[in-house]
Every structure is written in C-alpha cells, then in structure tokens.
Amino acid sequence: MSSFKVFDIAGSAMGAQSLRLNLVASNLANADAVTSSINQTYRARQPVFATELQSALDQRGAAAGVEVRGVVESQVPPRMEYAPEHPLSNADGYIFRPNVNTIEEMTNMLSASRSYQDNVEVANTAKQLLLQTLKLGE
C-alpha cells in the first residue's frame, strides 16, 4: 500500500537530520582537541544530502526521500597557534587547533533540529490520517 511511503520519506529525512546532529555534536565535542601535528588534527565533518534517486524514478517521479551520500571533512586548514608553554606543542612551539567553527555548528544544530521536528510532524499527521482511513464507513 502506497500510503506508507510517507513514513519512508519522513523516516529517511529524520535519519539524515539525526546524522547531521550527531556530526554537529562530534564537531563541537572536538572543537578544542589540540594536537601537536597538523596531520592528526580533527577536521570538521559535514554530511552530504541527496535525493533518493531510485524512489524518484519509480512512481511517476513523485515524492522522494533523502539519503546521506557521505560525510566530508572540511578543507579549511587547521588553526596553527604559537604556544611553546603548551604540553602538546611541537619542536617549533606550535599547537594545532581543529578547523571547527562553533558558531556555524550551533546554527547547523538549530537547522537540523527544526528540520527533524518538521518531519516528525509530517509523520504524525500521516499517521492520524491513516488511522482515520481505517475507520472509514463506521
């Protein structure tokens, strides 16, 4: 029954948004993870969203859910800081801070949680409509 497709769609979006929230949490948690080598520094991670192509192709190209294509690391160079007194500083006295932009991450978090709420609401409404449909003719 095609009525349940709406749950797949809302569910895929909720999954994608919760992954985004997880990445925000990871980025914020590691925002101050200082290292002594540029190669070991944590880099901000972001999800890549795309429309589910398969479901877009069947059923007259109608409604399609979201899939997460992957997680990419930010290409912004980590921040280099001169701190010779820091226990993790390298031979030249530098430490490396992750390229996490906390303000960006906070707005990302708000956007993700709003989108998640939207999809919960969609799923709730669809559920109510289906329950009413089951009672048809009573």
Binding site: V6, Q17, A63, V66
Partner: peptide, 11 residues
C-alpha cells in the same frame, strides 16, 4: 507523499 518529500528534502 509529494509534500512530505518536499519537507524531507528541505536541506
């Protein structure tokens, strides 16, 4: 379904 798809793909 279509409107749910639109909302799901808001980002």
């Amino acid at each position: 379904d279509i409107l749910a798809g639109n909302l799901a793909n808001a980002d």
